[in-house]
Design a protein around this nucleic acid. Structure first.
Lengths: 109, 109
DNA sequence: ATCGTAGTACGGCGGCTATCGTACGAGGGT
DNA sequence: ACCCTCGTACGATAGCCGCCGTACTACGAT
């Protein structure tokens, strides 16, 4: 197997398909202050960001936990780049499934 | 004190002012299946509804709990009418504080 | 090969929360 | 007066969730 095309394949990151994204898990995911902060930061710097760039006030393991919740809810997409894990908002998918939701949340207070 | 104007005044229901409504509690409140169902029902039959009309798959006390969470988050307004407690969506207040949020949530899947 | 950096896995802990049952209060009808 | 209905208060319980530390893996650089 060509390892070259499998960079960062040691760990499989599960992402729900667009059709599998559900409202309730998305709301749960966004109802946490830290995860909301992650999403806001991602939206502001709209582009891919490494996890370290967030400077969250929690430990590494807790950070991992929050990113996983966001990913499994379908809010963000993650992939490996070298030793870093990059994150990107799934804006199109969210817009397709829940039109206006992300904009409303980002726009609020 | 004129009791006539104080029907159902035995219990004071606390409602946050419009400015006190915050995004995070609102999202938490809506992240629960039963409370989401309540909000959807309220929106559908848009008008005031008594609690019994919801036919929720939980006990009375749990029902009381969910309505309180919604009320304290600022999602619904409640008042007494005889022995019933009426509920109404705070659509205008929500729209003022988080434009588009309620519509997006009601419109989703 | 060794080390450092970035992140994951696992186990544990404390607190929040959804749930219930029971007991009680407030109104309306008979 | 009595009771029935609708809802609240309170206490208990069980499960989830956010948080941490530690041990481990993956990748890149030296």
């Amino acid at each position: 197997m060509s390892k070259a095309s499998q960079v960062g394949a040691g760990r499989r990151l599960h992402h729900p398909d667009r059709d599998e994204i559900r409202l309730e898990p998305v709301l749960s995911a966004l109802a946490d202050p830290i995860r909301l902060r992650i999403v806001r930061t991602l939206a502001r710097g709209h582009g891919d960001m490494s996890c370290v760039a967030f400077d969250l006030p929690v430990s590494k393991s807790t950070s991992t936990h929050h990113f996983r919740v966001l990913r499994e809810a379908g809010v963000i997409h993650q992939y490996y780049e070298g030793t870093s894990r990059m994150s990107r908002l799934r804006e199109e998918d969210l817009e397709a499934r829940m039109p206006g939701l992300l904009a409303a949340i980002l726009g609020a207070s």
